[in-house]
Design a protein around this nucleic acid. Sequence first.
DNA 1: CTGTTAGCGCCTTCAT
DNA 2: ATGAAGGCGCTAACAG
Lengths: 346, 346
Amino acid sequence: MAETLTAALTLKDIARQAGVSLATVDRVLHNRPGVRPDTVRRVREAIERNSFQPHVAAAELARGRARRFAFVMPSGPNPFMQQIEDYLGEMSAWLSSRRLSVEMVATDVFDPSVLAGTLEGLSDDYDGIAMVALDHPGVRAAIDDLVDAGTKVVTLVSDVPSSRRHHYVGIDNIAAGRTAGALVGRLVGQKPGKVAIVAGSRGLRDHAERIFGFNQVMASEFAGLSVLPVLEGRDEDARSEQVLARLLSRHADIVGLYNVGAGTQGVATALSDAGRDKQVVFVGHDVTALTRRLLLQGVMDAAISQNPGHEARAAVRVLLALARGEPILREQEKIRIDIVMRDNLP
Amino acid sequence: MAETLTAALTLKDIARQAGVSLATVDRVLHNRPGVRPDTVRRVREAIERNSFQPHVAAAELARGRARRFAFVMPSGPNPFMQQIEDYLGEMSAWLSSRRLSVEMVATDVFDPSVLAGTLEGLSDDYDGIAMVALDHPGVRAAIDDLVDAGTKVVTLVSDVPSSRRHHYVGIDNIAAGRTAGALVGRLVGQKPGKVAIVAGSRGLRDHAERIFGFNQVMASEFAGLSVLPVLEGRDEDARSEQVLARLLSRHADIVGLYNVGAGTQGVATALSDAGRDKQVVFVGHDVTALTRRLLLQGVMDAAISQNPGHEARAAVRVLLALARGEPILREQEKIRIDIVMRDNLP
DNA sequence: CTGTTAGCGCCTTCAT
DNA sequence: ATGAAGGCGCTAACAG
């Protein structure tokens, strides 16, 4: 299967073959106007015939434009978001050696008007924006305005599918919920009983979707398990602990627990304090210092995770590809739903 | 947290600041000899002071060298290896727009002398070689010879740790085996019984390591389960089916099954023919068209997988970084042990 | 509509 | 030990 190794062609070669100048080939290559259809065809043929690929490094250098990207992230102390920011930080050498800059913009992503306001303010300053977005009409409008203004927009972790954002970097949350459900059900085994759900808020799209998927699987496949009403812990430890502790005291037959969002420490404390951390199958999200410890201790049984390093890099690469008008490598940028248990901790 | 956005510096700026010429800065940048220690220091300081990063695109263009890489892969029809080749094929535009070429070399990677011979023949033709390697002294020697000749060497999927290969792209197979063990144990639940293992051959390092990890977990955590002697199916369907069918007929109390390598179709057939495909917890490796189907049907319960697309891209990126003398992004290139169940199928 | 030309930032001889 | 100068392949004015 030896590939033919023709000495790499250049624009000039194509130009010669097509009997035109460099500039014309360049115009055709970038679909710029001002070339007679017939000429276009001749050039296209020459390109095809040689399966010519322009040298990206040369193009980048000649274009010589620096690009600025912004990442709009929640302002609160969320370990998962912090990880994404850390990985962006690790890319700094990679970024600056390509004359790219990314800036962090912290805002209250849970308040639609605040978020929308933040987005409006960014309009002209950036070539591209990645954001953790709330699915709300005001936010959708702000996104569409950005897109209309020519800014490339990528939603990160939490999507706004009704908007005209160019790309979503994150997992399918319904499938994630289904995965959590299947894990809880399978790990509980035959034992009948009740299953608890702790979420941040049912108003968050990603949480709602996860719960939906979870319930779907529970209903269809684990008839022996009955799901209790969703508790809302606002992603806070104290509140999560409190609501779960109450639930545990009322139901002695809880055999499974799904923690949909953050507040993991609170959930774990409630379980331990009730002395039931080893009996209840506990599945949550994301690999953090805390969930890692809980998995090793056997308190948590599995974590559903989306690789934050991959998400950070994918968001940057997608913004860059969009800005340059290059194709996006879907396969590479797709974020998978990882199941992490004690023995495959990354 | 706004970053300072200094207009990107160039070599020339550094040269001026250090009071030297372009060429000298370039020499320092690449640790080339012929610069007085004192001058080196002055230049280094200027670079540090501005945290200067040379523009990679410019460097690539100026260097202008095409690189050739080879991938040495098993010649048999292995679906997983086929996937890696397919993903390499998908990269062709990416590769040629960077003036890189990769060529596939098929060989019998299971025969040490054949493999070693193939490797020797490649010495001078390539800047870098990725290979699926057998851990054997002859192969180790061939690898070390390549390294001595200045060729960059990456082992893929299967490692030769005792060699001086520059990098290994693949998973930790002991951990993968542990993960499989934990899954079988947890999914079986309380039910006591026996567990079967089907491997290609215990002589393959990766299979041996997986079995080791699997047994480790079984022994330490699932006292109720007893592991039967390892069956060898040579990664062939017919043979795997045959040996497993015999085992199933002898032991009515098999509750778990770990298929370490290929031959998956044979294993599945044996289970189905015995009418026990729904009762036995079946864990295997890799996501292929077949394992995907088996997972959806509920015949397989989980697949331990290493993302073939990621492995293909990581191998190329690592070879390229090695060839250019750039740092390898460990975090990015690390291959994770994926647990794939029905609901998180990629 | 098409061609000419001057760089982009770095690397690499070749001089000094 | 150091500097000067000509590209690498493409893009973007500016002419025609």
